[in-house]
Design a protein around this nucleic acid. Structure first.
Length: 937
RNA sequence: GGGCGGUUAGCUCAGCGGUAGAGCGUCUCGUUUACACCGAGAGGGUCGGGGGUUCGAUCCCCUCACCGCCCACCA
């Protein structure tokens, strides 16, 4: 006999081990089995499971288990990401906290060693937590973005893209993170609103030039008064950048400054003469209409500088301190200190015209949180534009579809406006860039005194050196410096140094759907499992990850990496706030699993994963689904107590009892709903179909209606109902298993123990059923529907009339036709039992002292004389009649409308006719009863 | 500035052309031997406002308001 409740803590680890040991997590080897493949969004290797992971992975597991049961070769491929910047940051922090020397003092090798140590220490945590979630991943295929195979894939891709001209080195402005001292991509920049100011500076004109500047205007905005100026006003939010100014731009059509174009200003402090240039970028309506140009530190200015031929003067070091391109007194100063100093000096010297307080958006590093500094450096870039075109087309064509579909717009929007992707990072933890620098040389390999390094891109050091040797015509060696030995015009050896930088983490993640399968080797897995089926992920990484996998997947595999992208919602706290450690509103999924069981958490996340919306998670909701599990548990317990054991060879098609035919049909319908929902996938619909069927149909009605049979004398009906109950329970366990794997597996096992035939396999490996539509029996459905309605009517009436639960009023059925009489005969016992009735009889007319109950075309007269409060009953009938009258009016009006009759679909018209007839009949019955009541009292 | 969502019962959300639904909460009743993590019943909504299309609009179109998010930018 089952315990009274399910004990998840005891069961979950045991079952998970049993599943894994059984090999169920591995895809079927059957060559005829159609593959179903999901690659996991790899969590940070050193991270821990948060509620977003719980949602994301629950959905993946539901899909994997569902398709596995459907007979597919289901592969859910797990793995973790090295998460370059995030992991490096964590380890650096740990070193600092432990009072260790910093990473730069420690040196690259020692530091990377430390990171690997940290990975070894904490790397198993997240995968173990995924196990706690019940994730049925194939752990034998687990991958890590920095493992040997994936590293080889990264090098291969880098080299090929380079050969194809799709990856190149370029000197451009990048988003520089001064905290981590690395370039980051556009996507890693967050705009945040901060308090700031426009500082208006007056730059003096060179050579004594003056001009007339308007100061007063008439109603039409025409200038009426001018003043003579020997300066031009510019405004800036970053005063310190003025040290790097190389020009001032005005709009070509701006009358105020027309004569100044071509003249110079003398840059204060620095004393440099810089030109006033005409450029469309200058907006006459903003500020003074004149804008200072700092090409080395502003993206717009960089463009202006390019167009106007202005030089770029880099005034910052990687630490965001001023370098020696600025006057000596400022060298080494932090950029914000420099800002203060320069403003103070401007005020002192009188060229600070105005400080305008404002709030404005300032770029910040998403990891470091510090203000990003646009910075001119050499970096590696991927030609994202070229790669984006096929990726766009694939989604436009429907080769890959998003679910919900509207996310495609987001994807398109980004890809259509894509910029080159900066993939190099000045970090140590990651894939080292497979490029080697050699000394400057001409194209024939003759060394030059100066010039850019020659670059050799190759998958291995040997290849790079061989290439270098070929190029320079001498031996090449790897070294920590770039150079040569021997005479300049006849060197004995050249030294090549591998690029110190590593690749953006997302570069390796972009290869995930094929690198994890073994590419570039021609493995059986690549052949069988690429392209993958569904990617389940969050919308926040559509750009970072999804789009890039599309680009790389199509480019290297000639096929999209996945056919469907399911975008899951964002989990928020119950008030709708984003969870964050600093807010302290983080819900730990493992704590929830401990408290309420994994199945409850999974069911909640599945049920709440409606699309296009945030999930506001509350514990109350999870408790509700824990209760749902208990309900199922107890239903099984009830079945056990009543000897509802599975019968070998039982054929649901053979049942004769209307009750059993009806529930069989309900199972078929539910199977259809759940299958359709998980195929879509529409997880919430699947969950609610299961919930409704198990609780509101099976428990509330079938088991209740089965009770009289199981306690009755009809042995044949009893045996059939027992077998049917066991069969339905089995179907329930199967259908619910993808969402609630533990409790269902446990019940699957326990129900076999209790005298039933042994199970062929664990539930996880059991086949999803198929059932013919013919198992839906309309007649039985109508009959049980009638019974259910009648019981409902009587219960409602009893409650309203305060008939005590112990009372068993008689029911006289009036005006029953053949069909209803038959139903009444067959269902009499159930009706009596569920409605708690006394005698049920057939009568010509309603006896006195009864209240009417609508029973299809018949009327039930419930003998409640002793409980009747005439006034209350009159009120009840009047209210019910009013309801019908409203319905009759509404429907009648519709049917009286010739346009409706002419244009509405015939079945809709017919439906309305029936509705009208029913309402009129019901109204007539109730009116008759009201009349009798009036006559009585 | 550009874009994408959302606004339905007290709360959280389904529904998205043809009688407004669920869960939770509320109220009333109930120890009928599966389950009080339960059962029975009830109350509760002019589906954000305004237009339009349609025989018919919560659902489609337009518009406004408010909320949320993404992208870009404000020298």
């Amino acid at each position: 006999m089952l315990e009274k409740t399910f004990d998840p803590k005891a069961v979950e680890p045991r079952l998970y081990e049993a599943w894994e040991a059984s090999g169920a997590f591995k895809p079927s080897e059957d060559p005829n089995a159609e593959p179903f493949v999901i690659v996991i969004p790899p969590p940070n290797v050193t991270g821990s499971l948060h509620i977003g992971h719980a949602l994301n992975n629950t959905l993946q597991d539901v899909l994997t288990r569902f398709h596995r049961m459907r007979g597919k070769a289901a592969l859910w491929l797990p793995g973790t990401d090295h998460a370059g910047i995030a992991t490096q940051m964590v380890v650096e922090r740990q070193l600092a906290a432990a009072g260790n020397i910093g990473r730069r003092d420690m040196g690259r090798e020692a530091f990377v060693e430390k990171v690997w140590e940290w990975k070894a220490e904490s790397g198993g945590a997240i995968t173990n937590q995924l196990r706690r979630l019940g994730a049925s991943c194939d752990w034998s295929r687990e991958r890590f973005t920095l493992d040997d195979g994936l590293s080889a894939a990264v090098r291969k891709v880098f080299v090929q893209l380079h050969k194809q001209g799709l990856l190149y080195r370029d000197k451009r402005l990048v988003n520089w993170d001064p905290q981590f001292q690395t370039a980051i991509s556009d996507l890693e920049v967050e705009q945040k609103e901060v308090d700031g100011a426009y500082w208006h500076f007056a730059y003096p004109l060179a050579d004594g030039v003056t001009y007339q500047h308007p100061v007063e205007f008439d109603d039409e905005g025409k200038p009426t008064q001018f003043e003579t100026r020997d300066y031009i006003v510019v405004a800036t939010t970053r005063p310190e950048t003025m040290l790097g100014d190389t020009g001032v731009a005005v709009h070509p059509t701006d009358e105020r400054y027309k004569d100044l174009v071509g003249k110079d200003v003398v840059l204060p402090i620095v004393g440099r003469r810089i030109p006033i240039v005409a450029d469309d970028y200058a907006d006459p309506t903003k500020g003074s209409g004149a804008v200072k140009i700092t090409p080395a530190h502003d993206f717009n200015d960089f463009q202006v500088g390019k167009r106007a031929g202005l030089p770029s003067i880099n005034i910052l070091t990687p630490e965001a301190k001023l370098n020696d391109a600025v006057p000596a007194e400022y060298v080494g100063m932090d950029r914000f200190a420099a800002r203060k100093a320069i403003v103070a000096r401007a005020e002192e010297e009188g060229w600070l015209k105005e400080i305008e307080k404002t709030k404005h958006m300032v770029p910040h590093g998403d990891r470091s949180g510090v203000v990003i500094e646009p910075y001119l450096t050499d970096q590696w870039y991927v030609d994202a534009y070229t790669l984006a075109q096929p990726a766009l087309k694939a989604v436009e064509n429907g080769d890959t579809v998003f679910e919900p579909k509207h996310w495609e717009k987001t994807y398109f929007e980004w890809l259509r406006n894509i910029e080159p992707w900066c993939v190099s990072r000045q970090l140590w933890w990651g894939h080292r860039i497979p490029a080697w620098f050699g000394p400057p040389a001409d194209d024939e390999g003759r060394l030059l005194e100066a010039g850019p390094y020659r670059i050799f891109v190759a998958e291995t050091e040997e290849e790079a050196l061989a290439e270098g040797a070929r190029f320079y015509g001498v031996r090449a060696e790897a070294d920590s410096r770039v150079g040569f030995d021997g005479p300049f015009d006849a060197p004995k050896v050249v030294y090549l140094n591998q690029d110190e930088d590593v690749l953006d983490t997302w570069f390796s993640s972009a290869l995930w759907p094929f690198s994890t399968l073994g590419w570039p080797e021609k493995t059986p897995d690549v052949a069988r499992f690429y392209p993958t089926s569904t990617l389940v992920t969050g919308f926040d990484i559509i750009f970072f990850w999804v789009a890039r996998m599309m680009m790389m997947g199509i480019h290297f595999m000639d096929e999209v990496p996945f056919k469907q992208v399911f975008i899951n919602a964002l989990v928020r706290d119950e008030k709708g706030a984003k969870m964050s450690k600093s807010k302290g509103n983080v819900i730990d999924p493992l704590a929830l699993i401990d408290e309420l069981g994994c199945d409850a958490v999974r069911f909640t996340l599945t049920a709440m994963s409606g699309q296009a919306r945030d999930i506001k998670l509350s514990k109350q909701r999870i408790e509700g689904y824990r209760n749902f599990g208990t309900k199922l548990w107890n239903a099984t317990r009830f079945a056990q107590m009543n000897g509802c054991v599975r019968v070998e060879g039982f054929d649901p098609a053979s049942v004769t009892q209307p009750l059993n035919k009806w529930i069989r049909g309900e199972v078929v319908k539910t199977l259809g709903e759940v299958t359709k929902a998980f195929e879509a996938p529409a997880f919430d619909e699947g969950a609610s179909a299961l919930y409704r069927f198990i609780w509101n149909v099976f428990c509330d009605w079938y088991l209740e209606l089965a009770k009289p049979v199981l306690n009755g004398e009809d042995e044949a009906a009893k045996a059939e109902t027992r077998a049917m109950t066991a069969w339905v329970l089995d179907q329930i366990l199967i259908l619910l298993h993808p969402v609630m794997p533990f409790i269902t597996e446990e019940l699957w096992d326990k129900t076999a123990e209790e005298g039933g035939p042994a199970r062929d396999a664990m539930l996880i490996s059991t086949s999803w059923p198929e059932m013919p539509e013919s198992w839906i029996d309309a007649e039985a459905a109508a009959e049980i529907g009638w019974l259910v309605d009648t019981v409902g009517e009587i219960r409602s009436l009893r409650a309203e009339m305060n008939v005590p639960p112990s009372a068993k009023p008689a029911l006289a059925v009036v005006g029953a036709g053949e069909g209803t009489l038959g139903r009444l005969e067959r269902q009499r016992d159930l009706l009596v039992s569920l409605a708690r009735l006394g005698e049920v009889s057939i009568a010509e007319t309603a006896p006195a002292g009864t209240a009417p109950v609508v029973m299809g075309e018949a009327t039930g007269a419930l003998g409640v004389a002793e409980f009747i409060d005439v006034a209350a009953e009159k009120a009840r009938l009047t209210k019910e009649i009013a309801g019908h009258v409203g319905e009759i009016e509404k429907t009648g009006k519709k049917l009286g409308n010739p346009d409706f009759l002419a244009r509405a679909k015939p079945e809709v018209v017919e439906e309305n006719r029936e509705r009208l007839a029913e309402a009129e009949a019901a109204k007539a019955k109730l009116e008759a009863a009201l009349g009798r009541l009036a006559a009585m009292g």
